[in-house]
């Protein structure tokens, strides 16, 4: 199918907002016949930074990285399961690095034309705006971005579909 949305990327970070966005992405992908990719980025940059700053010790860095890699497996598996429920085929991507940079790379490499992210937390300080990885990705990617809101409505839509 040819149209304005052919390849969609949903960024999953394990938050409830991102999983709701994944449900919406599955429904949208099915409706428009777009290929759907789900990505989880293990923020190894932050882990390395904390180690260099002596805030983490090496065993802690390794433990957190292991935890985050397990989270990636868990949430991407959940994404695949949800998609299968709606007869939608998806591909999953797990990367390590700086989250917003990796998202941009994936978008470029896969020629993604729509990035979907979960609802952003309410920005209450300038620092939040700068630090939030979804926010940074949203502002800097070259493709269009869709922010999924209204969790209850999305859940209902997903159940009914």
């Amino acid at each position: 199918m040819s149209g304005p949305i052919e390849r969609i990327l949903i960024y999953i970070d394990g938050s409830e907002e991102s999983l709701t966005a994944a449900q919406y992405a599955i429904l949208l992908s099915k409706a428009v016949g777009a290929k759907l990719y789900g990505a989880f980025i293990v923020n190894t940059h932050a882990l390395n930074d904390l180690l260099k700053s002596n805030i983490f010790v090496e065993s802690e860095q390794m433990e957190y990285q292991r935890d985050l890699e397990q989270d990636a497996e868990k949430y991407l598996h959940h994404f695949v399961t949800m998609a299968a429920e709606k007869n939608v085929e998806v591909e999953t991507i797990r990367e390590n690095g700086i989250v917003h940079v990796k998202i941009k790379e994936i978008i470029r490499e896969l020629d993604i034309d729509l990035l979907i992210v979960g609802e952003l937390s309410r920005i209450r300080s300038r620092r939040d705006e700068f630090l939030h990885e979804s926010e940074r990705a949203m502002r800097t990617v070259r493709c269009s971005v869709l922010i999924v809101k209204d969790t209850d409505r999305v859940w209902d839509l997903f159940e009914e579909a």
Binding site: L50, D67, D71
Partner: peptide, 17 residues
């Protein structure tokens, strides 16, 4: 124990600030 991601984010934010 099952919230390493949010924990990491919070520690990183404090460290940066």
């Amino acid at each position: 124990p099952d919230q390493s991601g949010p924990h990491l984010e919070a520690i990183s934010e404090i460290a940066l600030a």
